[in-house]
Every structure is written in structure tokens, then in C-alpha cells.
């Protein structure tokens, strides 16, 4: 019954203004290291359709509409050069990426000027690499970031005690 679906292949975000779109690209490409894959451009029809449906589009025909950046073969983040202002507290809490080694990832992110948090940013606890860090209730090491559009991003390293890994390997 689950056979038709192979897996999660991408997640997509509206970025807001063209300046925010550039900040989002900087975050996902230059900070997280995802590889530019392809872009699609706006045309008049696309812009009209979005505006009629109540979406903000500041870009003009011929400007970049969508940028796909590759996490690993077959998995992507899709960024839309439009949308906003973002309002309210909505359903999606975060997207989580798996990492091989969370300490190395955190060191690299801090070197690149990215704020790294122990829990969601709203809890206000910066990640302190000098303190011993224990796995979460699920047995995995985690840390949190916030992208320039305000989306919570989680990084997770599975351990031998990870409930996620136990489930995957038990299949």
C-alpha cells in the first residue's frame, strides 16, 4: 500500500521580497552548502495567477521565480521569489535535515556566522559547544537554526540509541 511513494524529495518555501529571496539563497547555498540545481523564470501569466490568488509578487516577468538547490541526489529545497508578509503561527513547525556529525556541522555554521540554538530559537539558548550535550528524548543529537524567512530548521545526528534509526534498521 505504501509502494507508490518512494520518499520525501523536496520542501519548498516562499521567501518574500527579492532581497529576502537572495538572503534565503545565501542561507541554503552558502551557509548550509546545498548546490544550485536550476531556476525557472516568471512570466506574465504566472505573476497574474499568483496575484489573483492573493500572493505578493514584487518580481517582474523574466526575473527568477523558483530556485532549486540540491541537498543530496534527488532531494532539494525549492525557493520561491515571492510571498509574504508572513503572518501568524501556522502548522509547520520545522524541517529537519540529517547530518553525519553535528559538532562539525555546528562549528562550520558558527564560522559562517549562522546562529545555532540548542532548542527552538524562541527558547533563547545559544548552542554552547563547550558544554556536554546530551541526546534528546528520541536518542538523537539536535540543534536548531532559523532561516532568513523565519522558518525553524532542525539538524539531527542519529546515534546508536536513536528511535529513528531503530525504526529504519528494524524494517
Amino acid at each position: 500500500m505504501s509502494e507508490p511513494i518512494k520518499g520525501l524529495t523536496h520542501v519548498s518555501y516562499f521567501c518574500g521580497t527579492p532581497d529576502k529571496f537572495k538572503e534565503m539563497l545565501d542561507f541554503y547555498v552558502d551557509k548550509l552548502g546545498f548546490a544550485p540545481k536550476f531556476t525557472l523564470d516568471f512570466d506574465v501569466g504566472v505573476i497574474d495567477n499568483y496575484r489573483q490568488a492573493g500572493y505578493a509578487v514584487e518580481a517582474a516577468p523574466g526575473d527568477t521565480w523558483i530556485a532549486y538547490v540540491e541537498i543530496c541526489p534527488g532531494q532539494f529545497v525549492e525557493l520561491f521569489n515571492m510571498g509574504g508578509p508572513f503572518q501568524g503561527d501556522n502548522s509547520v513547525k520545522h524541517v529537519c535535515y540529517t547530518v553525519e556529525d553535528i559538532r562539525t556541522a555546528i562549528e562550520e555554521l558558527l564560522d559562517r556566522g549562522v546562529e545555532v540554538w540548542e532548542g527552538p530559537k524562541s527558547l533563547g539558548k545559544p548552542y554552547d559547544l563547550g558544554e556536554p550535550h546530551s541526546p534528546g528524548a528520541c536518542g538523537s543529537y539536535t540543534c536548531f537554526l532559523e532561516d532568513p524567512a523565519g522558518n525553524e530548521v532542525e539538524l539531527m545526528e542519529y546515534t546508536d540509541r536513536s528511535l529513528q534509526r531503530a525504526w529504519i534498521e528494524g524494517r
Binding site: 520518499g7 523536496h10 520542501v11 492573493g54 525549492e78 510571498g83 503572518q87 501568524g88 503561527d89 524541517v95
Partner: peptide, 18 residues
């Protein structure tokens, strides 16, 4: 959550399954 989760108001667009 307290928002109405309308796509016009949020940054998240969708997830995609292959």
C-alpha cells in the same frame, strides 16, 4: 497553532513526495 495556516500568509509552501 493559532494562525489560519493559509498559504498566502506563510513561508512554507509544500513538501513533495517522489
Amino acid at each position: 497553532y493559532t494562525g489560519d495556516n493559509k498559504p498566502q500568509k506563510r513561508s512554507f509552501v509544500h513538501i513533495c513526495l517522489e
